[in-house]
Computed example of a mutant assay.
Amino acid sequence: MKDFFYGIQDLFVNGLFLPFDKLRALELESWFAANSVSWIFMLIGFVAFIYWMMQLAKFNANNEEDKSVTAHSYL
């Protein structure tokens, strides 16, 4: 069973996290290049936020939401 967990460790340390080690080596040369994965995730989050806001504006413009006091039981 010990070899199973060492195999998982080897997969992650020597395989899946290897690109992150290469990015960490770039930190001395360029901060933006070293944090490129974070920038990509921030861009994806920003695009998702804009899409969400556009969908909310669309539903609000169509007056599809029930805004009465009794619309939700917890109000």
Rank of each mutant, 00 (worst) to 15 (best):
73 S>M: 01
6 Y>W: 04
10 D>E: 08
63 N>M: 11
55 Q>A: 12
11 L>P: 00
35 N>D: 01
22 K>F: 09
49 F>D: 00
56 L>E: 11
21 D>E: 13
71 A>H: 02
39 W>T: 13
61 A>T: 12
46 F>M: 08
74 Y>W: 11
43 L>T: 12
28 L>F: 00
53 M>D: 04
20 F>N: 10
57 A>N: 11
34 A>L: 00
52 W>N: 13
34 A>I: 00
29 E>K: 07
47 V>S: 08
68 S>W: 00
55 Q>N: 11
68 S>H: 08
48 A>Y: 09
20 F>R: 05
26 L>S: 07
46 F>L: 12
6 Y>T: 02
55 Q>K: 15
35 N>L: 05
58 K>S: 13
9 Q>A: 14
64 E>S: 15
56 L>M: 11
57 A>E: 10
27 E>Y: 12
30 S>A: 07
53 M>F: 07
26 L>A: 10
2 K>I: 04
60 N>M: 06
42 M>P: 00
5 F>K: 08
50 I>T: 05
68 S>I: 02
69 V>A: 15
19 P>F: 01
56 L>C: 08
61 A>R: 15
41 F>H: 10
37 V>D: 00
25 A>D: 13
71 A>W: 05
40 I>F: 06
28 L>Y: 00
46 F>Q: 04
6 Y>Q: 10
51 Y>Q: 10
66 D>K: 08
10 D>F: 04
